[in-house]
Structure formats: structure tokens, C-alpha cells
Amino acid sequence: MSRPPERATARPRVPRFTRAEHWVHRATATLMAVCVLTAGCLYLPFLAELVGRRALMVTVHEWSGILLPVPLLLGLGSRALRADLTRLNRFGRHDRQWLRAALRRRGGRPAGKFNAGQKLYAAWIAGAVLVMMGTGLLMWFTHLAPLVWRTGATFVHDWLALTVIVVIAGHVWMAYRDPESRRGLRTGSVDAHWARHEHPLWKQEEDPTR
């Protein structure tokens, strides 16, 4: 009687994100997608004609923008999320080395749990959201400022929105090229070999004595 084939040993995995971080990212991404789609319905004629109901699109766009920071604010109750925000706010020598290597398309890109590109994206999108909210409020509540301010707010809001769409598209493209990174956000863990290769300083970052 032949023996059944042995099951392949599962590759070791390491925890990367908690469930709270997963839901903060998903909720934020959903609200951002609603903002972008409703903005398209307001500014692109063919979408405006296809969807119609401009007043509804304006209301949904306004409220999705106002609610955008809420998932992150609620997620601050998670110790893991607060620790990751601290990591994202730290930019060290190895991050500058990572950027130089990335710009020159070379290997040898040292990174902790987050690489320099992810840190720059997080900082930029956070600042952009704050500016978008400020200019959006000036456009929404017309009594808050004189006409010249509202005109300037509209200009900044519209052009920054276009930039945000381009940057988010780049972020999605980079995530598409790295399935293990996406799996880590979806399942909470990543392949140990991937972690050592893509984020070699991650372990040292968690335990500075190593």
C-alpha cells in the first residue's frame, strides 16, 4: 500500500498588521474612492450626464470628505496603529539611502517596517487631505470667507484633487506589483523571506538591541 504524499511545509510568516489597522485602511480607502468618484461625476461631463442627480453627488462628495479622517481617529485606540504612525513619522539615514537607490533603480534599499516611499506617501496624503478639507469647507460654507478666498480655495481644491488622483493611482500600481504586501494588509501576516528581503531593518527596528 503506497504512502500518501507528504504535504508541503508552509513557509513561515510574521505578523505585520492588526485587524484594527486593516479596517482603518479599508474604510479610509473606501471614503477616498467615494470622494474621487463623486468628484468625477461633478467635473467630467460624460459622467455627469451618465449619473445625473448632481445635488446628490455634491452631498455625497461633501460628507465623504468630511468623514475621511474619522477611521484614523477611531483607530487611534489601537496601540499597534499608534506604533505604526510613529514609525511612519521617523525618517532616518537608511530612508535617504533607500530613496537614492530607488531613484537610481538599484538594489540595496534598507527599510524598516515601512520604506521611505511609503513614509513619503503617508505624509503627503495626510497633508493633502487636510488642505482638501480646509478648501472644501470654504467652498461649502460660503459665509466663512470673502469671495476672493473662496475663489482661491476652489483653484487649490481642484488642482490638488487632480494631483491626489495621480498619486493614489501610483500607490495602487505599486501595491498591484507587490502581491505579498497586499496579502499582508489583507491577512495581517507576510512571508518571513519577503520581510527579510524587502524590510531588512524591521526586526532591528522592533528590537534595537539586536
Rank of each mutant, 00 (worst) to 15 (best):
E180V: 03
A192Y: 02
G40I: 05
A192L: 13
L42C: 04
A83K: 05
P12N: 10
T163C: 12
P200W: 11
K119M: 07
G170P: 02
L147I: 04
G134A: 15
L50P: 00
P5A: 15
L68E: 10
D191T: 02
H199S: 05
A27P: 01
M57Y: 04
R186L: 15
K203M: 13
E49A: 14
F141N: 12
G134Q: 09
G184R: 05
Q97L: 10
G136F: 04
H22F: 14
A111C: 03
A83R: 13
G170S: 07
P5M: 14
G127L: 15
R150D: 00
H199T: 03
L47V: 07
Y176Q: 12
G170M: 09
L120K: 00
A175G: 02
H25C: 08
I125C: 06
L74E: 08
G127T: 04
A27E: 06
W140I: 06
L31F: 04
G184I: 02
H22N: 13
V148F: 06
H171I: 01
F91S: 09
V58A: 08
G52F: 02
S181N: 06
A8P: 05
A145T: 04
L162D: 09
E205A: 03
V190N: 11
A10Q: 13
A27L: 13
T59G: 10
K203W: 12
G184N: 07
W149T: 15
L50V: 05
P15I: 00
E62Q: 12
